[in-house]
């Protein structure tokens, strides 16, 4: 029973991260039609930024986190302007360009951080919240989940309550019809990748104090994000968040009661099943004509 309760806590924390990883990917895919393979690397850059600024140069964690968000957002904007825009309407070209970025960012991380063991960031919020002897949440994770949920709520508010948010969703639903409403597609793409980059940078900055930091850490991120995105329904943000939480529960419990390898296999299996049985995902709709 103790393991059960601890696993519930673990699931929610993991779900927050999964959702944060996936929504950025979904947003860029929806609005720009590009599968950004470098999304995991953007998360990695966020983590490295915190490591460099906070652990190496002693800048406060919160300022470092904010800089990470802005920096990764800026990288995203550069990608849109110089790599994705020239390849508009060519999803394969965009994908290949993003794989190029993935390589570049990994090598950049190696140059910045050197080799050696994975980098670590000492937790700015140390200590553990002990609810019961068998129910413990590290303060750092508590902080991370709170910020992640706040960021997701903010995103939800932006997309559902603001005209700019509607325009993003309109472009995702029907580019041409959106253009006919006077929505500037290039500007909307910039907003989408800017938000996506900011979320990736935030996810990386939140992960920095609680996970290993190394140049290829983005792979686990992108694989999980793909599973969550496909299960949730490609292009569906609410689907991605729901799938993230469900997948986190599945992954955590299978890991705790069986093994992590089986948990990942389950994830991939469910992804394949969704692709076969309901390719639009649990929340996705048919693409409009």
């Amino acid at each position: 029973m103790e393991l059960f309760f601890q696993s519930v806590i673990n699931s929610f924390i993991q779900g927050g991260f999964f959702a944060l990883w996936a929504v950025g990917l979904v947003l860029v895919f929806g609005v720009m039609g590009v599968v950004n393979f470098a999304h995991g690397e953007l998360v990695m850059v966020g983590a490295y930024t915190v490591w460099v600024l906070h652990s190496q140069y002693g800048i406060g964690y919160i300022p470092a986190l904010c800089i990470a968000v802005l920096l990764v957002m800026f990288i995203g904007l550069l990608m849109e302007r110089f790599l994705f825009r020239p390849k508009q309407g060519d999803p394969l070209g965009g994908l290949i360009n993003s794989i190029g970025v993935l390589f570049i960012l990994q090598v950049a991380a190696l140059v910045v951080g050197g080799t050696g063991p994975a980098k670590q960031v000492a937790p700015p919020f140390p200590g553990t919240l002990i609810i019961q002897e068998f129910l413990r949440i590290p303060n750092q994770r508590l902080f991370s989940i709170a910020v992640a949920v706040a960021a997701l709520l903010l995103l939800w508010f932006f997309l559902t309550k603001t005209k700019l948010g509607w325009s993003l969703r309109a472009v995702a639903l029907d580019r041409e019809a959106a253009a006919l409403q006077g929505i500037n597609i290039n500007r909307t793409s910039m907003i989408a990748i800017g938000v996506s980059g900011a979320l990736a940078g935030l996810a990386g900055a939140l992960m920095a104090p609680i996970s290993n930091i190394y140049p290829t850490m983005g792979h686990n991120v992108i694989i999980t994000a793909f599973i969550v995105t496909i299960v949730g329904g490609i292009g569906s943000l609410s689907g991605a968040v729901l799938a993230a939480v469900l997948y986190a529960f599945l992954h955590t419990f299978v890991t705790a009661y069986f093994s992590g390898t089986i948990a990942t296999m389950c994830g991939l299996l469910i992804m394949v099943l969704v692709l076969i049985v309901k390719p639009t995902g649990i929340m996705g709709q048919k693409v409009s004509e």
């Binding site: 969703r169 309109a170 019809a177 709709q285 409009s288 004509e289």
Partner: peptide
């Protein structure tokens, strides 16, 4: 008003 109406169905 484009052919096929093309309203934003999720909005």
């Amino acid at each position: 008003v484009p052919e096929g109406r093309r309203v934003f169905k999720d909005l």
